[in-house]
């Protein structure tokens, strides 16, 4: 397992796609924050005479709102990184040397999770730095360091469970183009609009309020990005993310084990 990880990490950090996705993620974060600031100052100027006020953009605000920014880039990288093993048929070099398919899968999941975390936190860091330079970090909440560590750990869990979905998709599809396209679709369908759509649909079907966000893995990117979380929310979020991680990984491993190479 250690050898598998060593080989995967070597390939990962020698892979140009990783650096391209990382740089693009950083650029998008920088440009996105810049546009946010421009839009904010424009909207504030427009609404000077009204009661509407845009949120105060600062480091802490960007920190709480940027955790989903890198998803597009790591989903693309995961598709390229894993599917190319199948396209170049190098997966045969690994399987034929007696490594169990479970271990091969887990090794890919761990290395891709690492990439997802790097990309996510790079995105967040750039946004926070830009905002802090422009208008300061903002007022620190109480128990800042402890809450920050908790938030980072919870966000890592969310990113890993989202990564497990992308990894599963690639192991099911195997082709680079198909995997990239499907992961992009997941990016699109994971958004708030879809959650709203599902919520409305469920409400119509069951004639009562259903909060889909509670059970939607992707929502916890935003829900966990708070310095004041109740234990209930944390517990529910952890259960949703761990369950998603286990289910997606199990499906991926079963499929990989059953299929011929």
């Amino acid at each position: 397992m250690i050898n598998l990880l060593k080989a995967d990490l070597y390939k990962l950090f020698k892979n140009k796609s990783f650096y391209i996705c990382l740089v693009l993620s950083i650029l998008f974060s920088y440009m996105g924050t810049m546009i946010n600031f421009a839009y904010n100052s424009f909207s504030n100027a427009q609404s000077m005479y009204s009661l509407l006020q845009m949120p105060e953009l600062n480091g802490i605000y960007m920190f709480k709102t940027s955790f989903r920014g890198g998803m597009l880039f790591y989903s693309i990288f995961i598709a390229i990184f894993i599917a190319s093993e199948f396209s170049w048929q190098t997966i045969k070099n690994i399987v034929s040397r007696g490594f169990s398919r479970e271990k091969i899968y887990i090794s890919k999941l761990i290395s891709c999770s690492l990439v997802s975390i790097i990309i996510t936190f790079s995105y967040v860091l750039v946004a926070v730095l830009y905002a802090t330079i422009k208008s300061g970090f903002g007022k620190l909440p109480s128990h800042f360091v402890l809450n920050l560590i908790r938030m980072i750990l919870l966000e890592c869990l969310v990113v890993i469970s989202i990564t497990s979905l992308f990894v599963m998709v690639v192991f099911l599809i195997k082709g680079i183009a198909g995997s990239v396209a499907t992961n992009l679709l997941i990016n699109f369908f994971s958004g708030d609009l879809i959650v709203l759509g599902i919520t409305l649909l469920l409400e119509k079907m069951f004639k009562k309020d259903v909060d889909v966000n509670k059970y939607w893995m992707f929502s916890y990117n935003n829900i966990f990005a708070s310095f004041s979380l109740s234990n209930d929310v944390v517990f529910r979020g952890i259960v949703v993310c761990v369950l998603s991680l286990v289910v997606f990984t199990a499906i991926g491993i079963i499929s990989f084990k059953k299929r011929d190479i």
């Binding site: 050898n3 598998l4 060593k6 080989a7 070597y10 390939k11 020698k14 892979n15 140009k16 170049w88 048929q89 190098t90 045969k92 070099n93 690994i94 034929s96 040397r97 490594f99």
Partner: peptide
């Protein structure tokens, strides 16, 4: 084993390809 076509990392040099296998 070599099965069907040569299974190599096309963007790696010969040494890098072998290094992957060595780490593995």
């Amino acid at each position: 084993t070599i099965i069907e076509n040569p299974s190599l990392y096309p963007n790696f040099t010969a040494k890098e390809n072998l290094r992957v296998q060595c780490k593995l």
